[in-house]
Design a protein around this nucleic acid. Structure first.
Lengths: 95, 95
DNA sequence: ATATATTTGTAAATATTTGACAAGTCAATA
DNA sequence: TATTGACTTGTCAAATATTTACAAATATAT
């Protein structure tokens, strides 16, 4: 769904930061950050890492949500979504 | 990896078809089909369905491999790949 | 009402993907 | 060894998609 964006908003609000402060940190505008939070735009991998630093959050936690959103976006609507995910998991887990 | 392309080649060879015959069926050229088989090009969803008909193979089987390749391509290289896949699975399975 | 924060819309710039073709390799065999 | 047929590789312009920055709209708070 929008796990990454929701987390971002949660972290931002818990720190009492404004969109424009996060935007400045990422060297972009508030519209972009707003869109990140509502999953209307996709963050670059590098931006996820920067945000992890800003929010003192484990990078892999944010990366997992960020990647998961992308996977969801890819497989969502496909009847074979679950099956395909399982195939991929097996493939990866068997190195 | 290249599950879809490998399956395609396997099916094509088992039917004794030439690349150009499959290409004609898909209204494209042999180079494109060759690239599909070697995962150098991505088939359109519609082409997967056409191929399922040509090879009398269950559409969902081919679609699963086709989608799985795309998921793999997306998460491959990411340390958090497995974790992200599991998150996505849970999200989808809980409807 | 004003000021500040956030969201929405969009046009131009960028980037990515596609499709079609030409030229290449390879293997079989005349 | 020349030819043929099957497949692979490389290129590149056209078609698509994505990104970006900005302006405008809306919402929230004082």
């Amino acid at each position: 769904m929008n796990k990454f964006g929701s987390k971002l908003r949660e972290l931002r609000e818990s720190k009492g930061l404004l969109l424009r402060q996060v935007a400045a940190y990422l060297e972009t505008d508030t519209a972009f950050v707003s869109k990140l939070e509502r999953n209307e735009r996709k963050a670059k991998r590098e931006q996820v890492l920067q945000l992890a630093i800003l929010f003192e959050s484990p990078p892999n936690d944010l990366l997992s949500l960020w990647l998961s959103d992308q996977i969801y976006e890819l497989v969502n609507n496909e009847e074979v979504a679950v099956n395909s995910l399982k195939i991929t998991l097996k493939t990866i887990e068997n190195k």
